[in-house]
Computed example of a mutant assay.
Amino acid sequence: MSPKRLTLLIFLLLPLWVTAQEPKTLTLVATDLPPFYAESLDSFGPVAVLVQEALQRRGYQVELKFYPFIRATALIKAGKADAIIGLWYRTERENWAYYSRPLQGTEIAFLARKQDRIGYQQLSELKDKRIGISRGYANPAAIAGSKLHTEEADSDETNLRKLQLGRVDLIVISRNVAQYLIAHGPAEYQGQFEFVGEPLAKEVFHLGVSKTRAGSLQLLEDFNLAIQSMEEDGSMATILSPLSTSLN
């Protein structure tokens, strides 16, 4: 091939090569859930940092947007977002999302005001209590299948405020989230609350990949491979280490 023709061939193929080398951009969604991830946290929080680092290792760029949970899942179902950060496993969610390897766990428990001195052995003993739950979240099976009196609120912050004001007797909340909200809340929160009873559930965060998007299984495989490598090289534990203190 003559030098002139070779130059022409390179000129024609260069745009294709550049396009192939450009990072793939993903749209991820999440719901504010500090200290795990939230729009207000540095770098959007440890779990968000972990997810973005894993995807970047596999050649993806990430655009992360925060929405209420119901809106975020609607975008995933419609294929208008590629994946959701922090999806807890429920069988019915397999209809619209692939679950990644586990990312981080948290215990779900009852929180009460100390002054109310609430104790119980069986959930049935709480039938006269008003229990705050968060709208759109996957509540523990023990709560979902009970006949307890539950009241929905739009967020954990709202539920905590209602508890502090005595408008509910207990709230269902992640231990980590409760400890974060209390520590960063108003002065009157300090020393006022306690966890009651044994944990209701242990939930695990996953990346939920939209089944509607093209190449969803490839994205899932890429992400899982990156997470596995980060588990092995210790970087996953380092990124998530700020969360360990809130479990104490």
Rank of each mutant, 00 (worst) to 15 (best):
S155F: 06
K202S: 03
E198F: 06
Y180H: 14
Q21L: 15
D233A: 09
A144F: 13
K24Q: 15
S100D: 04
I84D: 06
V168D: 03
I76N: 01
L33A: 09
V29N: 03
L225R: 15
Q104N: 09
H206V: 07
S244A: 13
Q121T: 15
Q21R: 11
I227W: 02
Y60W: 11
E94R: 13
V47L: 12
I182P: 04
L126Q: 02
E221P: 06
Q192A: 15
L28I: 09
E232Q: 14
K127E: 12
S216H: 15
R101P: 00
Y98Q: 05
E125V: 04
F193K: 02
H149P: 05
G132H: 03
A141Y: 12
I133Y: 00
T19S: 12
A74M: 07
L75T: 08
L9W: 10
T19Y: 13
D233V: 14
Y60Q: 08
Q179C: 02
L219A: 03
G45Q: 06
A109K: 14
A144Q: 13
S124L: 12
P140R: 00
A237G: 07
F195E: 01
Y189W: 10
E194W: 04
F223E: 00
A153E: 13
S174H: 08
A142F: 05
Y67W: 14
T106I: 06
